[in-house]
Design a binder for these strands. Structure first.
Lengths: 241, 241
DNA sequence: AGATTGTAAATTGGATCCAATTTCATTGAC
DNA sequence: GTCAATGAAATTGGATCCAATTTACAATCT
C-alpha cells in the first residue's frame, strides 16, 4: 500500500483539487499512458513517417516483445490503426501496413481539398497574430531545411497551424486522418522537380491571404495548392497500385 | 482434427473453389464473424437506434455475459466504438454511451452539408435507373410510414441511395460516421411541426433534380435540406448540453 | 455535522494459457 | 515433375487469471 503522504499529491482528472500549499515538482502519475496507447503511438508514428514499408507484416508477438508487454495491448493498438486505415487486419492472418491505391490516394486528396479550403476560410477571421507568426516560422523552416524527411512534417505543421483557429474539432480530426494516410508519400514527391520551391511559393501566397484577412482567397489558393500536389503525386506514383 | 469430407465444403476467401456437385444449404463457416465484431455490431446498432441513452454505462462484464463470451472481444468492440465517437472510454472507469454537445452536433451537420452536396453532385452523372427507382421507393416509404422509429432509417436509406453511385468510398465512409453520430436525434425532430411532410417535399425536389441529371441543383437542394434539418434539430435540442 | 481516512467491493488493464486457423514444408500418387 | 493430401510449426482469437485503479462506504477525528 502507498504512503498516504504521497497519495495527497495525486491529481484526479476532472476534479481538480484545491491549490495545495505544497510546491513540488510532481509527475501526474494518474494520467500515465496505457500500454496499448504507447504501442499505438509508436506504430502510428512509424507508419506515417514511412519507416515501415507498405505491406510489412506486423506480428503481434514481435511487437509485444519489443515493448516488453503482452499481445493484448498490441491487438488493441492494431485494431485502432486498422480503423484509421493505416493497417489492414485479416482474421487469423495478421496485420500488415496498409498501402494506398492510386484511386484511394486521389479520393483522399479530393477530400482534403474540400475540407481544408472550408476550414481555412472559417479560420481566417479568427486567426491570432500568434498563429500567423507560428505559421510563418514553419513556412520559413520548410523553405530552409534540406532534410527531405522533414519536408512533409513541416508542410503539415504549416498548414495545420492555419486551420487550428477555426475551432472546428470534428473537421480537424477528419483532416488529421486524411493527412495520416498520405503524409509518407509526400516527401518523395516534394524532392523532385523543384517541388519544394513551388510549394513554398504557394505557401507564401496562402499565408499572405490569411494575413490580409482574405478568407475566400485563402480558400481558393488552398484548393489549388492541394490540387497541384495531388496531380504531381499521382503522376509520380504512376498508374499502378 | 476435422473430417476431410466436410473440409471440402469450406470456402476460403480469395480463392474460390470450383463448383461442387453437392447442392447443400451450407453456411460459410470460414467467414463467420468474430466475437468482437458481433458485439460491435450489436452495440453500434443499439446506440445508433437510440436504444441506449446517452451516458449509459457499458460494463464489460455485463456485456460479456449477455453475449456469452469473455471481456476480451467486448473491449475490442468498445475500443472501436470509441474511435467512432459513439462511446467514451475513461481508463479504469469504463465506457459510457457518448452524448453529443450542441456545438458538436452543429459541426457534424456542417460537415454533412459539405460532404453530401459534393457526393451527390458526383453521383448524379453516374446514377442508374435502378438506383433512382430504389431511391423513389425509400422516398415513398418514408412518406407513408407512421412509425416514428423508422423515419430516420428510411431518411438515411433514401439519401444514401443517391450517394452510392458516386463510387467515392472514402467520402461515403465519412458520411456514414457522421450519420451514425446524429441519426438517433433525428426521429424526435421529424415528429414535430410537420417535419416529415417538409422533409418529404425536399426529398422529392432532390430526387427530381437527380432524375433530370441536374447535379448542381441536386447539390444545392441537398445543402438546403440538411441545413434546415440542422436548424430545426438544434432548436429542438435547445442551447444546452 | 462535516471533513478525512481507511477498507472492501467493483471494475478495468494486462499476462498467461488454450483453441482455432493459417502457412509451409513434406509426402505420396499419378 | 506436378499436384493434391498431410501434418507440424507459426500465428491469431478468445478464456481465465492476477494486478492496478476507482468507487462506495464505514470509521475516525475535529
Amino acid at each position: 500500500m502507498m504512503d498516504a503522504g504521497i497519495c495527497t499529491l495525486w491529481i484526479t482528472p476532472g476534479t481538480p483539487q484545491m491549490a495545495s500549499n505544497l510546491k513540488l515538482k510532481s509527475i501526474d502519475i494518474g494520467n500515465r499512458a496505457s500500454a496499448g496507447s504507447i504501442v499505438y503511438d509508436s506504430l502510428r508514428k512509424a507508419i506515417i513517417d514511412g519507416e515501415l514499408e507498405d505491406g510489412t507484416p506486423l506480428r503481434q508477438d514481435d511487437i509485444a516483445c519489443q515493448f516488453n508487454t503482452s499481445r493484448i495491448p498490441v491487438r488493441e493498438a492494431l485494431s485502432k490503426l486498422e480503423q484509421e486505415g493505416l493497417v489492414t487486419n485479416r482474421r487469423y492472418r495478421g496485420a500488415v501496413v496498409a498501402g494506398i491505391s492510386h484511386r484511394e490516394a486521389s479520393e483522399i486528396f479530393d477530400f482534403r481539398i474540400l475540407m481544408e479550403s472550408e476550414v481555412i476560410a472559417a479560420s481566417v477571421p479568427k486567426m491570432t497574430s500568434a498563429s500567423l507568426s507560428k505559421a510563418r516560422a514553419y513556412c520559413d523552416e520548410f523553405r530552409r531545411t534540406d532534410d527531405s524527411k522533414s519536408w512533409s512534417k513541416l508542410n503539415r505543421k504549416f498548414h495545420y497551424s492555419l486551420y487550428r483557429d477555426s475551432g472546428l474539432k470534428y473537421h480537424l480530426d477528419m483532416i488529421d486522418n486524411a493527412l495520416d494516410r498520405t503524409e509518407r508519400y509526400v516527401d518523395t514527391q516534394l524532392s523532385i522537380s523543384h517541388g519544394v520551391e513551388k510549394a513554398h511559393r504557394e505557401h507564401l501566397a496562402i499565408l499572405e491571404a490569411c494575413e490580409n484577412g482574405n478568407a475566400e482567397l485563402a480558400a481558393r489558393l488552398t484548393r489549388e495548392h492541394i490540387s497541384s500536389v495531388r496531380d504531381e503525386l499521382l503522376e509520380h506514383l504512376g498508374g499502378g497500385r
